[in-house]
Design a binder for these strands. Structure first.
Length: 540
DNA sequence: ATGGTAGATAGC
DNA sequence: GAATGCTATCTACCAT
């Protein structure tokens, strides 16, 4: 049987549906993931409907299963998404998502050899060469074990915790139905809860409908205007003789100029792929295109103005103010930094005042600029030497090494709680296994010999901020819908929503307050500030 | 030809 | 004692 044999795949789909129904658990319910193999992604860019009709048929079966499953009330909001203009290409319940969650939570890879979906397809001989590679990677990635050399197409390698076993298709169905249920159930109760990870896992599960809806919504882009901006880059590239400027323009042209052609869909919207479990820290990964790296107004004037609201709508744009400093003040903990925020003071002025030995009110703009670099640079363990580079390239400040050392000392004497936190993390033994955690329990493991001081400082802060943001996204998904609005993009600490013009102000208030309240749940000891605005485009 | 990686650079 | 971190994407380069 091959992928080009729809009838056989229909039969496989029916068998899979039976299998899933027999093995259904709440966990399998949340293990819902858009799955599209890399070679298919390229084809799908041209015509989603043409890609692997067999797999789409499979997805249809699975979709029915998912939406009818009594265990899955939280996933029912997905129904309109699946019926919408850009349903996920292939959606079916399998263990992939679940395995990803566990991996990102820092759990040992589960003792389940393969996803049942992949196993079934493999058994049916439906996987093309690239698919096999993908499956191979999946198994290696999650099991961290070499794939057995004796494996060949048509056979199943199932890992039972000690070794790989080969199964024919019948054995797989019989085995995985029972075994998967047993293992997944055991992982919830025996692994997640005692490790304090239930809350992080539940957040990811609740977030999923909001993510899929955001992917489905996409963001409206003015393609003609975008092309005009890109043409401006090309013209300047021809005209300028400055090699530095040429390199900058080359980066812009090669990285962004083709976005309208490659990514604007027929309805004028870009729909990037969001991966809420794509990073160690818990932040989102975004790709094809990565709208989290659209150049700023400073780097590429006029570009962000191409990202707009649909007619009759407006954008609501909100972002957290100094979120990493606030989270660090909470986690460290640092009484001095907390007090700065509680009193409504400016943390950059506080550092500048220490350095210049004068009251905060007398700090000059230049002193404040230096202090901003200091606060951001030294927070996560940067050294004085590296700070010189950083201040030069990012803030256009020239310092000698002695000045950089003084800056470092000023930072730590202004915020002694931060200094104590750095000492604590610095005392962790690099020769042993170490873990750091976010507020909700997501953890990052540093295997013995692979400890990173800086990552151990950064990840809990970045990750806790991401958790507060994800909570906000989860809450905003249904709340915005009541106003006829929807989230269209998230950029780490910034949220973009598209709302009817008639409800712009109500939506702005809703977004700002929801974001503040959600972050306050994970960062209770420091006030949270969110800046928000109503604008026709991302640039304004 | 294709695959994997290092380095630069865009964002936060 | 010292040590920014997390990404995606592009080009250049080396290996198969």
């Amino acid at each position: 049987m091959s992928v080009r044999d729809p009838a056989a795949l229909q039969a496989a789909a029916a068998a899979l549906a039976d299998d899933l129904a027999a093995a259904a658990t709440p966990l399998l319910g949340v293990a819902l993931a858009p799955v599209l193999l890399p070679n298919e992604r390229r084809e799908a860019a041209h015509d989603p409907r043409r890609v692997r009709p067999g797999l789409l048929a499979l997805a249809t079966e699975a979709r029915t299963f998912v939406l009818d499953c009594p265990y899955l009330p939280d996933l029912r909001p997905l129904a309109p998404v699946l019926a919408g203009p850009r349903p996920p290409y292939v959606v079916f319940p399998d263990a992939h998502f679940y395995l990803t969650v566990l991996a990102r939570l820092g759990l040992a890879p589960p003792r389940l050899g393969c996803t049942r979906t992949a196993a079934l397809l493999l058994a049916e001989g439906t996987l093309a060469r690239d698919d096999e590679l993908e499956f191979h990677n999946l198994v290696e990635r999650y099991l961290k074990r070499p794939f057995p050399a004796r494996w060949k197409q048509g056979q199943i390698a199932l890992f039972d915790g000690r070794e790989y076993l080969d199964w024919d298709r019948g054995a797989v169905l019989a085995h995985t139905a029972g075994r998967a249920t047993e293992l997944l159930r055991a992982m919830t109760h025996d692994h997640l809860r005692p490790r304090g990870m239930s809350r992080a896992f539940e957040l990811e599960c609740k977030l999923l409908p909001a993510v899929v809806a955001m992917e489905s919504a996409g963001v409206a882009v003015d393609g003609a205007r975008f092309a005009a901006v890109a043409d401006g880059w090309r013209r300047e590239r021809e005209a300028t003789a400055d090699p530095e400027r040429q390199a900058q323009l080359d980066k812009l042209i090669t990285s962004y100029a083709n976005w309208p052609r490659d990514y604007i869909e027929k309805d004028g919207r870009m729909r990037p792929h969001l991966d809420p479990l794509g990073t160690d820290s818990g932040r989102f990964a975004c790709s094809r295109p990565n709208l989290q790296q659209v150049p700023s107004e400073y780097k590429a004037p006029g570009l962000r103005a191409c990202f707009r609201a649909a007619p009759g709508h407006t954008l609501v744009i909100a972002d957290y103010a100094q979120i990493e400093l606030r989270v660090a003040a909470h986690l460290a903990p640092c009484a001095a930094l907390r007090e700065v925020f509680r009193a409504g003071r400016d943390p950059h002025r506080a550092t500048a005042a220490t350095l210049a030995r004068k009251p905060e009110a007398e700090v000059t703009p230049h002193e404040r600029k230096l202090a901003k670099a200091i606060n951001f640079g030294f927070l996560f363990g940067m050294g004085a030497e590296r700070f010189r580079d950083y201040a030069q390239t990012h803030y256009d400040l020239a310092l000698d090494l002695a000045a950089a050392e003084r800056a470092r000392e000023a930072f730590f004497s202004t915020f002694p709680g931060i200094a104590a936190w750095h000492r604590r993390v610095g005392a962790m033994s690099p020769r042993e296994d170490n873990f750091v955690r976010t507020t909700l329990g997501r953890r990052k493991r540093f295997p013995a010999g692979h400890f990173s001081f800086n990552a151990a400082l950064n990840i809990p802060v970045q990750g806790t901020a991401a958790e507060g943001f994800k909570k906000a996204m989860t809450a905003l998904h249904p709340a915005l819908a009541e106003l006829g609005g929807r989230g269209v993009l998230c950029v780490h600490d910034e949220y973009l929503a598209e709302v009817p013009e008639t409800h712009a102000e109500a939506a702005r208030t809703l977004v700002q307050q929801t974001m503040q309240a959600a972050m306050a749940e994970v960062v209770p000891s420091v006030p949270i500030a969110v800046d928000s605005r109503v604008a026709p485009s991302w640039a304004e």
